[in-house]
Amino acid sequence: MNIQVRIKEIRTEFDSEFSACLSLEDFNNLQRKYLSRKGIVASLFKEIPKLSADEKRSAGKHLNVLRKSVEEKISEAIQSFQKKKKIDLSMDVSLPGTPEIYGNKHILSQVMDEINSIFNEIGFSVETGPEVETDFNNFSSLNFPENHPARDMQDTFFITKDVLLRTHTSSVQIRVMMDKEPPLRFISPGRVYRNEAINARSHCMFHQVEGLYVDKNVTFAELKGTVEYFCKRFFGKDVALRFRPSFFPFTEPSAEVDISCFLCGGSGCRVCKHTGWLEILGCGMVDPNVFKSVGFDPEKITGFAFGMGVERPAMLKYGITDIRMFWENDIRFLHQF
């Protein structure tokens, strides 16, 4: 066979074997096979003396090219395996570490998880419900009369006249009470919607955690204890609480809970509008009308409910100044928490 053709064949064979090599060992074997004294390339060189003068010159040239290319490819491959070792020897330990990419839990998830776990400690389970709700579950059953100014407190997105985007997660309370018998003790976290313009202080959607405890003899004093426990666990045990009478259609008596401003310690600052107090939570004893609408006897059963936003305490606790940041997902924001 013509030596030129053989050189070409061996070249193709080498390339395919080279590409099949996976380990340093493979490359060492390949080097032995082609470049050792008894290797393929050497054996070709041995055939040169048998050739004619013209053939000698041309074959020598091609063989040298082949040998050089095989040598280079293999030694480069072997070197790349050894490269790491070489760097080790001259290691500057002050070099920055290899960046490990960790993902981050969204701050709202972190806050909701924390709230959930605090309530889990004192016997509250977690219940969820749909975001598209009936007017009955969101308003009527919660003692919001039709044509009552109380409905103005919450601007609502409607799907139809009787179906809407829930304005609070109290609708979950209704669903659970319709489904189960007391004693019931759970919180319901989730997304809620209000038809409000989007700006730094308000958004058309946000998150709430509401809680309910229903049993034979639940008192306002227990409500105070529960809320106090939560606030001190969440905001720090030194915060002071203030309960003041308020109005919600679904609770009676109703209270608004303020905590002493943890930014100024109660002496008054811009965040607490110089009052020393931060409004954090609404609560009260479940209104008898709510019990009637789910078929519980208010003479036998009493209970308390509370509800709070998630964004607002998160903003207070972490100094977040613009509510839209929660929804923009700027990675510089996401990675800060």
Partner: peptide
């Protein structure tokens, strides 16, 4: 119940002593 709210309003919600007993029924 509306009158009960008046009672706690005039008594002062601040003055109701917090009850931290947790009656545990596991859910």
């Amino acid at each position: 119940i509306d009158l009960i709210e008046e009672v706690v309003r005039l008594y002062g919600m601040q003055n109701v002593e917090s009850d931290l007993t947790v009656n545990f029924h596991v859910q």
